[in-house]
Lab assay of single mutants.
Amino acid sequence: DLSALRVEEVQNVINAMQKILECPICLELIKEPVSTKCDHIFCKFCMLKLLNQKKGPSQCPLCKNDITKRSLQESTRFSQLVEELLKIICAFQLDTGLEYANSYNFAKKENNSPEHLKDEVSIIQSMGYRNRAKRLLQSEPENPSLQETSLSVQLSNLGTVRTLRTKQRIQPQRTSVYIELGSDSSEDTVNKATYCSVGDQELLQITPQGTRDEISLDSAKKAACEFSETDVTNTEHHQPSNNDLNTTEKRAAERHPEKYQGSSVSNLHVEPCGTNTHASSLQHENSSLLLTKDRMNVEKAEF
């Protein structure tokens, strides 16, 4: 173990290094160091905050020279020094078990990766560091076993998940096959086929009936047209017969005018059967003409 005197000496050296690497504005270890034209180094955030307070150039807090945003430059070497100082402080805390008085939040800088452990060898070769390295080497064999167990647990979990997924996939297939086998029997399929065939026959029977009705309507229309044509021909046949009657009536009127007047009046009210309204109107006109002729003949006879 380190003596108290040596611990104090190391602590004083760390404090001196820390004062050199402090920012003059925030009085902390410089984060993202930036250098000016006057070779003074500050935190990048502190300098941008200072420049944004005034429009135009501002003055350096140490030498009062003008500073602009374009004049600022990043210093990589200074950032490396800060990183190495942080590593020294971490090693000091691990070796002594004491917390550094002016320690900052170094938890963000710590890294437990194997590459980081290899890099620590180049920091300080001390008894405390050696003991700590031995402890780490002793704890390393235990870690692979834990990793193997965790991997086995994960693989077993994956296997159970896969088996569950396969079961879920197989179950719908089985149910679907069961439904297909038990849903419709052979008799049901035959009945469905016969039902479809009967429906098709009914459709075939319905369509000819409609065509037959249309044919019957067409035949009825044709018969009505033929009947009207026969009526017209009958009226045409009746007209010459009426003319013959008129000639006979004229002759009778010349011989017996008194008797014919009474008979002509009675004939006005008689309509021949089986004739249309057109034929009756023609008869009325003929009878009126005959009456006028008879009157003329009677007057001539009187004179």
Rank of each mutant, 00 (worst) to 15 (best):
residue 277 T to Q: 14
residue 170 I to M: 01
residue 137 L to A: 04
residue 188 D to G: 03
residue 166 T to K: 14
residue 84 E to C: 10
residue 72 L to I: 11
residue 13 V to A: 03
residue 1 D to P: 05
residue 204 L to Y: 10
residue 265 V to D: 13
residue 73 Q to R: 11
residue 161 V to G: 09
residue 80 Q to M: 04
residue 14 I to L: 11
residue 27 L to D: 08
residue 154 Q to K: 02
residue 57 P to G: 04
residue 12 N to R: 06
residue 20 I to F: 07
residue 32 E to K: 12
residue 126 S to A: 10
residue 52 N to G: 07
residue 264 S to L: 06
residue 243 N to R: 08
residue 88 I to Y: 04
residue 24 P to H: 08
residue 3 S to L: 09
residue 55 K to A: 07
residue 5 L to T: 08
residue 162 R to C: 00
residue 174 R to V: 09
residue 120 E to S: 14
residue 18 Q to K: 13
residue 152 S to A: 08
residue 169 R to I: 00
residue 121 V to T: 02
residue 188 D to C: 07
residue 15 N to L: 08
residue 296 M to W: 00
residue 148 E to K: 12
residue 136 L to Y: 03
residue 198 V to M: 08
residue 147 Q to Y: 00
residue 78 F to Y: 04
residue 160 T to L: 05
residue 6 R to V: 08
residue 302 E to K: 07
residue 83 E to N: 04
residue 132 R to Q: 10
residue 278 H to V: 14
residue 133 A to Y: 06
residue 165 R to Y: 10
residue 266 S to H: 04
residue 64 K to C: 00
residue 108 K to L: 08
residue 70 R to H: 02
residue 157 N to H: 12
residue 232 V to D: 11
residue 153 V to D: 08
residue 127 M to P: 01
residue 102 N to V: 00
residue 5 L to M: 08
residue 225 C to M: 02
residue 157 N to R: 14
residue 51 L to M: 06
residue 46 C to H: 02
residue 5 L to F: 07
residue 300 K to T: 00
residue 45 F to R: 12
residue 110 E to K: 00
residue 218 D to Q: 14
residue 10 V to T: 12
residue 190 V to S: 03
residue 270 V to Q: 02
residue 14 I to S: 15
residue 234 N to E: 01
residue 118 K to N: 14
residue 145 S to L: 07
residue 282 L to G: 12
residue 33 P to S: 09
residue 152 S to I: 00
residue 19 K to L: 03
residue 136 L to W: 02
residue 298 V to C: 11
residue 134 K to E: 14
residue 232 V to N: 13
residue 17 M to E: 15
residue 139 S to W: 08
residue 156 S to Y: 07
residue 150 S to M: 06
residue 148 E to H: 03
residue 211 T to S: 14
residue 15 N to M: 04
residue 11 Q to F: 10
residue 82 V to D: 01
residue 232 V to G: 11
residue 210 G to V: 05
residue 40 H to V: 08
residue 274 G to M: 10
residue 277 T to D: 14
residue 61 P to Q: 04
residue 48 L to N: 08
residue 8 E to N: 06
residue 266 S to E: 14
residue 174 R to I: 00
residue 144 P to E: 07
residue 114 P to H: 04
residue 213 D to Q: 05
residue 147 Q to F: 01
residue 247 T to P: 07
residue 261 Q to E: 13
residue 244 D to Y: 00
residue 268 L to Y: 03
residue 155 L to T: 14
residue 165 R to W: 02
residue 93 Q to M: 10
residue 300 K to S: 00
residue 105 N to D: 04
residue 76 T to I: 07
residue 206 I to E: 15
residue 150 S to N: 06
residue 101 A to T: 02
residue 212 R to F: 01
residue 133 A to E: 06
residue 179 I to F: 08
